[in-house]
């Protein structure tokens, strides 16, 4: 079984050649960026103006929480982070490369979008998944 991993969300793209990336859909009328495919813009209501765009791979930490209690089987603690990418899109994900300590986490700290296996999680058919993470820059 050397199947390639599946994307954890439909806006994570794994091309046959080249690096994985995150895809947004940008409104041609107002510029709003959405995650996932859609035809109508919920900011301005424009129809059929959406264009797929490759999202930036760098951004800044906007907000966060350090999660100490989650659902059964989910390893804690981890940092749940809201990140503004350089192109204006906003994403949520795990922040890695920094200790889960409020004193160590700074608003606007630069982060990089990295891709890695989804913490070993597999679906019922045994498929592996590729996920994205925010890596704090040293």
């Amino acid at each position: 079984m050397s199947k390639k991993p599946l994307p954890v969300v439909d806006y994570l793209k794994i091309p046959d050649s080249g690096d994985p990336y995150l895809e947004g859909h940008k409104c041609g009328s107002c510029g709003a960026i959405f995650l996932g495919e859609r035809n109508v813009c919920s900011k301005c209501g424009a129809r059929d103006k959406m264009q797929a765009v490759k999202l930036a791979s760098k951004g800044k930490l906007y907000s966060f929480s350090i999660v100490h209690r989650s659902f059964p089987g989910i390893e804690v603690p981890y940092i749940s982070a809201v990140v503004d990418l350089e192109d204006g899109a906003t994403l949520k994900g795990n922040l890695i490369g920094v200790e889960p300590d409020p004193a160590k986490i700074k608003f606007d700290m630069p982060v990089e979008v990295v891709f890695a296996d989804a913490l070993g999680r597999k679906d019922r058919e045994g498929n592996s998944y590729l996920s994205y993470f925010f890596k704090a820059k040293a």
Binding site: V8, I74, Y78, S80, A81, N94, Y132
Partner: peptide, 14 residues
């Protein structure tokens, strides 16, 4: 697919 909690941040209310 797989659970996203603790993988793509947290969706818990707290």
């Amino acid at each position: 697919g797989i659970p996203k909690e603790g993988l793509l941040g947290s969706g818990t209310m707290p």
